[in-house]
């Protein structure tokens, strides 16, 4: 589905990712955990071509990903929900969802009803402007909008940012439901203990390099991960 091989990338000549290798197989949740500044978001931004690839390769469905054309990636079935959500604030919830479906271009899509069942609050607020909703509702809308585009791979950048513990679980439960419908998910989280509890596989990033990889459960039990990220 997604394959990063020896990826080097960064900003303004400064290399942030060093030789990162990472894969996402169909139908699995893969987590990237690590401290602030470890290069988690840069990894996602490199995948969608917003950060320039300086070496190595990124392929999605065996096709190379070329930089700077993120609208084409969305049409190929790869959708990113950035940390700041990038919603259409002056559009209604319904209009945001309709715009999400633009990426689909005739491909098979999720039923809107199924998506709204994941986040019932959105159904009640279909005519509300996105910018007037709470942070949690905006996060749900951002994920719902991406699902409307019927992605094969969903990239989530810190979806729990600013959410209450209860809302965080609503979002994570939705992520599991999305995976169960056959969508691959690559999720970046600082909230390591929670995300490792349901991720199929995970990578630990440190200073732009992958230092550990394995199943979510194994990493959650790993002494080094516990010491560094789980306060154990």
């Amino acid at each position: 589905m997604l394959e990063l091989t020896g990826v080097r990338s960064g900003y303004h000549g400064l290399e942030i990712l060093h030789e990162v290798n990472l894969t996402v197989q169909p139908g699995e949740i893969v987590a990237i955990v690590g401290a602030n500044g470890a290069g988690k978001s840069t990894t996602l931004r490199t995948i969608v071509g917003e950060v320039k690839l300086q070496g190595g390769s990124v392929t999605f469905k065996d096709q190379p990903v070329v930089g700077g054309r993120s609208h084409e990636l969305a049409r190929r079935g790869l959708m990113l929900v950035p940390e700041h959500r990038a919603l259409f604030g002056s559009l209604t919830v319904d209009e945001n969802l309709t715009m999400g479906a633009r990426a689909r271009k005739g491909r098979w899509g999720f039923e809107k009803d199924w998506i709204l069942d994941l986040f019932p609050i959105l159904r009640e607020r279909r005519t509300q402007l996105a910018e007037t909703m709470s942070g949690g509702q905006q996060q749900m809308l951002a994920i719902a909008r991406a699902l409307m585009g019927s992605p094969d791979l969903l990239l989530l950048d810190e979806p729990s940012t600013g959410l209450s513990p209860k809302l965080t679980w609503t979002v994570f439960d939705a992520v599991k439901a999305i995976r169960d419908r056959g969508v691959s998910v690559l999720i970046v989280e600082q909230n390591a203990s929670q995300v490792l509890s349901f991720a199929d596989r995970a990578y630990v990033l440190e200073s732009g390099s992958v230092v550990l990889e394995g199943s979510g459960a194994d990493l959650a039990d790993d002494a080094r991960v516990q010491a560094a990220y789980l306060g154990g």
Binding site: V48, H71, L91, G149
Partner: peptide
């Protein structure tokens, strides 16, 4: 028109849903 308003509201979000801004 909805696409135009979406691009006005958030060009990055528009690219992310497959709109050629």
């Amino acid at each position: 028109g909805t696409s135009i308003r979406a691009v006005a509201a958030n060009p990055e979000g528009a690219r992310l849903v497959g709109i050629n801004t």
